[in-house]
Design a protein around this nucleic acid. Structure first.
Length: 379
DNA sequence: AATCCGGGGAC
DNA sequence: GTCCCAGGATT
């Protein structure tokens, strides 16, 4: 436990450090609640470097809540394509529509109203309210939890309910009531830049003298590592149709089916419910199973299918290790399948796709015998 | 309380 | 290869 005087000193030291050394990030140049909101959603479980280009593009395409609320969902997903956790984008637009309908397009300032928005939980609500409105809410995320666990030498799994509540109380106690937004960002910045998971830079830490983990001699021993579930191996086969003009075929986002518990190799889930190559989960004879699947889905009389194996692709999502075996299928024209689209293999920017689909397209391009394709790839 | 959802940079 | 990231929704 820290004394009141120690807490005041700690606040002063950390805030001074933050104000001197903070990174210049795009969302720190504004207090517009809409912009702060977009940044906080994008930053969920996603690193700063990955977010920056998406943030810039998204705000330039959707400058305000109304533009976001009134856009086609596919356009929102298209701007999110590649960032992952696509329910964030779907919830983001839903919340924009809530704000338009219930708050006249103005981002709400009451905590209950903010927490009622789709995709906004305890962390994000506190972050937006403190940063955009200066409200006194402590934001507890993974970075802050680690910093607090080290400051107090907290043992055990931080995500455990009671322990998270303990950390939440610590966060509230330390919160600087004079500048809650800067304080929350300072705690996160410290966690991201100094008090890092593996090798904390205690020599650079402005509050090291208050840190019990440092006093213990092994700060990196906090917090306790959490155990992960065993990985499942999955093998998929994907069809990459290819016309002389460089067009290929993508299947539309799968509709929402009422499956309680999808299998680990459920294709709809693995393609993130976005546009995707014709894909199946395979067991034994890969090309034969893919051929059978295609002959079933294609209109009759499409002739013979020539399947050329492409280099295999590795992709990891949560607990799944996916191997994709792509096949290039030369075709004079793209077969007509209801809902499917013909698009250039070289440019998927018109449709929302996951990075798994991008990887398959890239493998097909690299393998292409067309010289121009290789030249166009490398900048 | 557990599980799931993407993806990749840092180590 | 492993870890985990400015978490939230769902069950």
């Amino acid at each position: 436990m820290l004394t009141t005087a120690e807490i005041k000193t700690l606040r002063k030291l950390l805030l001074a450090w933050f104000r001197q050394f903070q990174r210049d990030l795009p969302w720190r140049r504004t207090k517009d609640p809409y912009a702060v909101w977009i940044s906080e959603i994008m930053l969920q479980q996603t690193r700063v470097a990955a977010v920056i280009p998406y943030y810039e593009r998204f705000l330039s395409r959707f400058p305000n809540g109304r533009a976001l609320a009134e856009a086609p969902q596919e356009e929102v997903l298209r701007l999110w394509s590649g960032l992952g956790y696509y329910s964030r984008a779907r919830n983001l637009q839903k919340a924009a529509q809530q704000i338009l309908a219930q708050h006249g397009g103005q981002f709400p300032q009451a905590k209950d109203d903010v927490m009622a928005l789709a995709g906004i939980g305890p962390y994000t609500g506190a972050a937006i309210l403190s940063i955009a409105f200066g409200a006194k809410h402590a934001a507890l995320d993974g970075n802050v939890a680690r910093v607090l666990a080290r400051l107090g030498a907290v043992r055990g799994d931080l995500r455990e309910s009671l322990r998270w509540q303990l950390l939440q109380r610590s966060a509230v106690e330390l919160l600087d009531p004079k500048s809650p937004g800067d304080w929350n960002q300072a705690m996160m910045e410290l966690g991201a830049m100094v008090c890092t998971p593996r090798t904390p830079q205690c020599l650079l830490c402005p509050v090291a003298k208050f840190c019990r983990a440092r006093q213990s001699g092994e700060p990196e021993a906090f917090p306790e590592k959490r155990k992960k579930r065993d990985a499942v191996q999955i093998v998929l086969a994907a069809a990459v149709f290819s016309t002389p003009r460089g067009q290929t075929l993508l299947m539309p986002p799968p509709g929402n089916k009422k499956v309680n518990k999808p299998a680990a190799d459920d294709i709809d889930t693995l393609v993130s419910r976005l546009w995707h190559f014709p894909t199946i989960s395979v067991r034994n004879d890969v090309s034969a199973e893919l051929r059978d699947y295609l002959l079933d889905s294609l209109p009759a009389g499409n002739g013979k299918l020539h399947l050329e194996p492409l280099p295999r692709i590795r992709h990891a999502v949560t607990y799944r290790n996916i191997t994709v075996l792509p096949f290039r299928i030369p075709a004079a024209k793209i077969p007509r399948i209801p809902g499917a689209r013909s698009i250039p293999l070289r440019d998927f920017s018109a449709l929302p796709v996951s990075n798994l689909t991008r990887k398959i397209a890239r493998a097909a391009l690299l393998q292409s015998t067309e010289p121009a394709a290789k030249l166009a790839l490398k900048p």
